[in-house]
Design a protein around this nucleic acid. Structure first.
Lengths: 203, 203
DNA sequence: TCACTTTTTGACCAATTGGTAAAGACACGA
DNA sequence: TCGTGTCTTTACCAATTGGTCAAAAAGTGA
């Protein structure tokens, strides 16, 4: 076997690692890093605590693994935004994809929000290394669209911030939204945000 | 002395309770409820742990006290929104006031965000009792403005959600914003959000 | 100054929590 | 069926943490 190459994980390994990560996502997103305990994760996963630590070296490694996995999923809709597409359509599609994620992956959204809220102690390098270059690239794309007269003049940075904040709000502040809503909030949000960004971006 | 009436607090009491609450706001907003320790709060306040517990019955009471104080400050800008004012101006003023709060009271914003993010375990009653009536009232006001033809047709609920999320974003996701910004983000946000909501709300 | 109250502290405790050690149960190819 | 490596559990630990208590110290009014 080549130096340093890991054996391919057995079926049990795959199943249990997945079980643990899914349980950990529940617990971490609900209580934060410090608020989550290995016992809670173990119980949610249906495994014993020492067994959890057979698959992961510690609490922190589980958290970091989740964060790493998350980063890819999280940035994907932004990656998908195509510089050669129709500008307004591309941006509105981006809004819709982000809103879909808030609806379908609220745990992931809250995990991310919690990490950022506490100063990104475990994710700051990722922000610099992965997010920033992508963000700058897409800002340049939007800038280009504006210069070409295809979009209204807006600051691309704050535009993206506002897309992030308005969509993720429905996952991160879900309890509040639930208390204050009568009908299905996400569907209302889809209509509202589509109209909002359409008016803001149309030339 | 009348039954159940508490003596007025001495100067020392006032000073130390304030010291503790300020330190606790630092620590809770930075690490969340569970992540904060009494030792950290004690050190930040410059008092010993037992002394902290002389002024507050426990960790939870400190947290609840902060949350209660916060609620008032937090809702104030919305309370200020005047049904008899000029609609567009009232709403843009509200946006600016919320942005000022994100700049001047980021700890409060993060404390609130953390509590909501984790399902508002200690604030759910407040949301129902204080926030919801005010929210419904102001939604009706906005609805009235729209019916009077003074504002563009938008869902008032989602309008308010979008004001909250876009402004608080600059406090709650500060690290991310810092990583991705070149200039002073709040000033850029003020210009951007003013233009955004102006376009959305103008008839 | 003196009696009395308020404030502060050091020593301590029980529960929780992340993590370990080692023995036992289990799967599976020979 | 047996032996070997994989997986699981029981029992345990040391550190942390929220909180207690009694006594000392510091104010305070007469």
């Amino acid at each position: 076997m080549p130096d340093g190459a890991a054996k391919k994980p057995s079926r049990i390994q795959q199943r249990n690692r997945h079980l643990i990560l899914d349980a950990a996502l529940d617990v971490f997103s609900a209580h934060g890093y410090r608020g989550a305990t290995l016992d809670q994760i173990a119980e949610a996963a249906g495994l014993s605590k020492p067994n959890i630590l057979y698959y992961f070296s510690g609490k922190e490694e589980i958290h970091v693994t989740l964060l790493n996995q998350l980063m890819e999923t999280w940035l994907d809709p932004l990656v998908e935004m195509d510089a050669n597409g129709e500008p307004l359509e591309e941006l509105l599609d981006y809004v819709h994809r982000k809103l879909d994620m808030a609806r379908d992956l609220p745990r992931e959204s809250r995990l991310f929000a919690g990490e950022i809220l506490q100063g990104a102690p475990r994710m700051h390098p990722h922000l610099e290394a992965d997010l920033k270059p992508l963000f700058d690239e897409k800002c340049a794309v939007i800038e280009g669209w504006i210069d070409a007269g295809k979009l209204a003049k807006v600051d691309p940075r704050h535009l993206i911030f506002s897309i992030w904040s308005t969509t993720q709000h429905y996952a991160d502040f879900d309890v509040q939204v639930q208390v204050l809503s009568d009908r299905d909030p996400i569907e209302g949000a889809r209509t509202y945000l589509d109209a909002l960004f359409r008016r803001v971006l149309s030339v």
